[in-house]
Amino acid sequence: MKELQTDSVNSLPQKWQAAEKAAWFKKQKIQRSYQHDVTNRLTDLPEYFIVEQYGELCYPPHKYPLYTVKPRIWDANKATILITGGVHGYETSGVLGALSFIEKYSRQYAQRFNIVVAPCVSPWGYETINRWNADTVDPNRSFYQPSPAQEAALLMDYVEKLDADFIAHIDLHETTDTDNTEFRPALAARDAKVQPLWAIPDGFYLVGDEENSKPDFQRAIIDSVKKVTHIAPADSNGKIIGEPISQHGVINYAAKKLGLCCAFSNALYSTTTEVYPDSPKVTAEECIHAQVAAITGGLDYLINNNLV
Results as ranks from 00 to 15, higher is better:
1 M>P: 08
37 D>F: 14
6 T>V: 05
111 Q>R: 10
139 P>C: 03
68 T>Y: 04
245 I>T: 15
105 Y>D: 07
282 V>Y: 02
115 I>Q: 06
5 Q>D: 10
243 E>N: 10
68 T>L: 12
77 N>H: 13
230 H>Y: 12
286 E>K: 11
45 L>H: 13
217 F>N: 08
148 P>L: 03
159 V>E: 01
154 L>Y: 04
292 V>I: 10
199 A>T: 09
154 L>R: 11
119 P>S: 14
175 T>F: 00
198 W>M: 09
40 N>W: 11
213 S>Q: 07
143 F>Y: 15
15 K>R: 15
256 K>L: 01
191 D>R: 06
253 Y>M: 04
245 I>F: 02
3 E>R: 14
111 Q>I: 11
39 T>P: 05
163 D>W: 00
151 E>A: 02
200 I>N: 02
157 D>E: 12
261 C>A: 13
119 P>H: 13
307 L>G: 02
197 L>K: 12
218 Q>Y: 03
186 A>Q: 12
174 E>I: 01
189 A>S: 11
50 I>W: 03
234 A>T: 11
27 K>P: 09
138 D>M: 00
239 K>V: 00
267 A>P: 05
128 T>Y: 11
53 Q>C: 12
225 V>T: 09
64 Y>M: 09
170 I>R: 04
106 S>Q: 02
38 V>R: 06
9 V>S: 06
38 V>F: 12
170 I>W: 09
278 D>H: 13
234 A>H: 09
55 G>I: 09
286 E>H: 05
306 N>K: 15
207 V>K: 05
228 V>D: 06
168 A>S: 15
132 W>G: 00
136 T>V: 12
104 K>A: 07
279 S>Y: 09
87 V>D: 02
198 W>D: 00
173 H>L: 01
273 T>N: 09
106 S>E: 00
65 P>Q: 08
75 D>A: 11
5 Q>I: 12
108 Q>P: 01
121 V>Q: 13
69 V>R: 10
102 I>N: 08
55 G>A: 05
89 G>K: 07
184 R>T: 07
262 C>E: 07
53 Q>D: 00
306 N>I: 02
143 F>K: 10
52 E>T: 15
37 D>P: 08
35 Q>H: 12
308 V>T: 15
102 I>H: 02
231 I>W: 04
225 V>I: 13
87 V>L: 05
180 N>W: 08
175 T>S: 12
235 D>M: 06
57 L>S: 09
129 I>V: 10
135 D>M: 10
117 V>H: 07
235 D>E: 07
148 P>H: 08
161 K>P: 03
76 A>Q: 15
52 E>M: 03
44 D>M: 11
51 V>W: 03
198 W>N: 07
72 R>K: 15
206 L>A: 05
163 D>M: 09
60 P>H: 06
136 T>R: 08
109 Y>D: 00
36 H>D: 13
34 Y>K: 12
148 P>A: 01
115 I>M: 10
89 G>C: 01
216 D>F: 08
74 W>E: 01
129 I>P: 01
210 E>H: 07
73 I>R: 10
92 T>I: 13
306 N>C: 06
175 T>H: 01
155 L>I: 05
165 D>F: 07
5 Q>P: 11
